[in-house]
Design a binder for these strands. Sequence first.
DNA 1: CGTTTATATAAACTCAGGCTTATCCTTCGG
DNA 2: CCGAAGGATAAGCCTGAGTTTATATAAACG
Lengths: 114, 114
Amino acid sequence: MPNPSRAFQVLAEPNRRRIVEHLRPGERSVGTLVSELGISQPGVSRHLRILHRAGFVRVRADGQRRLYSLRREPFRDLEAWIHDYQDLVEARLDRLEELVTSEGAEPPKQGRRR
Amino acid sequence: MPNPSRAFQVLAEPNRRRIVEHLRPGERSVGTLVSELGISQPGVSRHLRILHRAGFVRVRADGQRRLYSLRREPFRDLEAWIHDYQDLVEARLDRLEELVTSEGAEPPKQGRRR
DNA sequence: CGTTTATATAAACTCAGGCTTATCCTTCGG
DNA sequence: CCGAAGGATAAGCCTGAGTTTATATAAACG
């Protein structure tokens, strides 16, 4: 329940995050998103369905078109989950590692201790 | 760079989130995680590498074992990204849709406009 | 009604990424 | 030194999920 599994999976898809970002200003029709994002229409529809099932968007019918807009709830849940990781006891640890962490290259290989 | 793409992708993996949750209390060796989570040792190592590359964890050598612990930065970034979605102009919209949204069934189908 | 527009759905293909198995490297214990 | 423990890495397999292409549904329009 407080499990954001679905949410992370849904937002892991780049095009879905793009859709979400394009919905932030307000509701959009499928066709609008298609031309704005350059994704195929079936692609947009499928992504919207996934977003809808996960509760990220609502739909509203307007004639033959469907207007999608964002919901807030899943974002709240996500933020709640993440918030629990803000109080980690790191500190100077980060400082130290920033001096050593060179990403991918560990030349010195300094093993010490014990 | 304030782009949480990588972060979402990394946390989309269920076992990686489990690892993260098991690291929350404090640092753990690879072997500890293996027995706690029931994931194969190569699996844990690979997930940890991915988490490391994405900045979620740091490593510390202790003899022949490696102690992993959480970093806070990526969580901060994530929270920042999500936070921008908290001010959506929804309101009674949610109320309404909760009455209608029956998942898959759209009975009324009221078309209007243009 | 017939056609066009807007969207959804289905089927087939493709590929990234996770899992398994096997092997290597390093460190510790005698 | 030698063997074993702790991890990392590589190779190959396999499934999930996204894309494409084609078609179905539904509403607007004449």
